[in-house]
Computed example of a mutant assay.
Amino acid sequence: MSTSPPASGRLADAYDLVIFDLDGVIYLSDKAVPGAVDAVQRLHEQGRSIAYATNNASRRAAEVADLLRGLGVPAEAEEVLTSAAAAARRLADRLEPGARVLVVGAEALRQEVFDCGLTPVSSADDQPVAVVQGYGRDVGWVILAEAALAVRAGALWIATNTDRTLPSPRGALPGNGSLVAVLRTALDREPDEVIGKPEAVLFEEAVKREAAGRPVVVGDRLDTDIEGAVRAGLDSLLVLTGVSQPRDLVAAEPHRRPTYVAKDLAGLFDDVETLAISAEGTGWHVTDGRLDGHGDAMAALRTICAAAWAGTDVSDIRGATDEATTALRELGI
Rank of each mutant, 00 (worst) to 15 (best):
L265S: 08
Y260C: 05
G134Y: 11
P169Q: 03
A206I: 05
A232W: 07
D248T: 04
L95K: 06
P120V: 13
A145I: 04
D316T: 14
A99D: 08
L11M: 15
D16N: 04
G171P: 10
A92V: 09
T287I: 11
L118G: 07
R329Q: 12
D126F: 06
A320I: 02
L17R: 03
Q127H: 15
G134I: 05
P167R: 01
G267T: 10
A320W: 05
A153L: 10
V286G: 05
R329N: 08
V37G: 03
P6T: 09
S122E: 12
Y135P: 02
S4L: 14
R290Y: 09
A65Q: 12
Y27F: 07
R110Y: 08
V230C: 05
H285P: 01
S2C: 04
M1K: 11
A306Q: 06
W141S: 06
E253R: 14
R59N: 00
T241L: 01
L331A: 08
Q111W: 00
I19P: 11
K197W: 02
S122L: 09
V201S: 03
G171L: 03
H255A: 12
K208N: 05
R189T: 10
W141M: 12
D38T: 14
A36G: 02
N55Q: 00
G154K: 12
D192R: 11
A153P: 06
A86G: 11
V239W: 01
E210G: 00
T185K: 13
E204P: 06
G283T: 07
H255S: 13
A106R: 06
A51S: 15
I143A: 06
V18K: 08
L11F: 05
D235R: 11
V113S: 14
E146K: 07
A276Y: 01
A206W: 00
R257H: 07
L237D: 06
A51V: 03
R89Q: 15
P128I: 01
G281Y: 04
Q46A: 15
T165Y: 13
V129L: 07
P174L: 05
T241E: 02
A88D: 12
S123V: 02
L237A: 12
N176A: 15
A262Y: 04
T54R: 09
V261K: 01
L71T: 07
K197H: 03
